[in-house]
Write a protein that binds this DNA or RNA. Sequence first.
DNA 1: TTAGGTGCAAATTCTTTGCACCCTG
DNA 2: CAGGGTGCAAAGAATTTGCACCTAA
Lengths: 159, 159
Amino acid sequence: MKVSKKDIKQRMARFEEVSRKSGAKLTHQRLEIFREVAQTVEHPDVEKVFEGVRRRMPTISMDTVYRTLWWLKSLGLITVLGPSRERVRFDANLSNHHHFVCTRCGLTRDFFSDELDSLTLPDSVLSIGLAKKTQVEVKGICLKCAADGKPGARKNERR
Amino acid sequence: MKVSKKDIKQRMARFEEVSRKSGAKLTHQRLEIFREVAQTVEHPDVEKVFEGVRRRMPTISMDTVYRTLWWLKSLGLITVLGPSRERVRFDANLSNHHHFVCTRCGLTRDFFSDELDSLTLPDSVLSIGLAKKTQVEVKGICLKCAADGKPGARKNERR
DNA sequence: TTAGGTGCAAATTCTTTGCACCCTG
DNA sequence: CAGGGTGCAAAGAATTTGCACCTAA
């Protein structure tokens, strides 16, 4: 499965627009790094992006890839899978439950719902693999952060 | 919000049972490390577990905490939040979608479902925070891994 | 021209490992 | 008492940072 030519074009166009609006420079490196993520459904990690870009641009450096990916994220041009930049966390609650994650402070709380425990997945999942466990992840702002006020650099906040 | 005395007791009992059955030794360290995770709803990271245990057991070392947590996971006594031990992955698909993650090889694929896009969350979420985005995460075995055969040490497989 | 961006190398931070000693069973 | 488990220190990975040079606007 690949991203269609049309979608790639659309994503590249949005990239140019957003990135110009932000006042940043449109460098070759940034263009190629974004293209690398935009043209695949594989959800590459930093290393994969680096390898892919290096094929076209042999002098690219790892730190530029890191910097650029977080910059793309800060512009909302890409998202990050999983607890981005968070440490691994452990959970001794083995019963069915779902997670609320505060995107500001990283707080993670369980919540429960019989309804969410028994979701029906679309047939398209069958062509990917055999589902074992389904969990809902809610991202939002916890009450404490909401009370504390506006966004901004804060302990644990992810770029 | 805390874990009830009753639940903690239950978890500790299960810990003893499973861990004995596995043939491993029940050391003070293991007991205290498991207790640290079992007694909280905070989903602590390695550092937090270490700090907590160190209060009661000042000579505990970080590497024992690491080793023990992965050991607890391998026994199924605790679970790990997010893509455990995986690198951060990036995604240029900004439209609503959900994820299927293969627990064996780490493959991650998007899938789509209008129904899942508009889930109703239980009221209990209101007491945690303001939900911004809800995403379903399905864990399972991808077709390729299922065809390849049995579980076992394999590239990217998580302990 | 010039401020922001890049590459390099070094620094940090996080996690794992080798090994001698210790303690559970 | 034997063998697995622990702590220490050192190694390894992954990621970030300081700085001089480069380049898009």
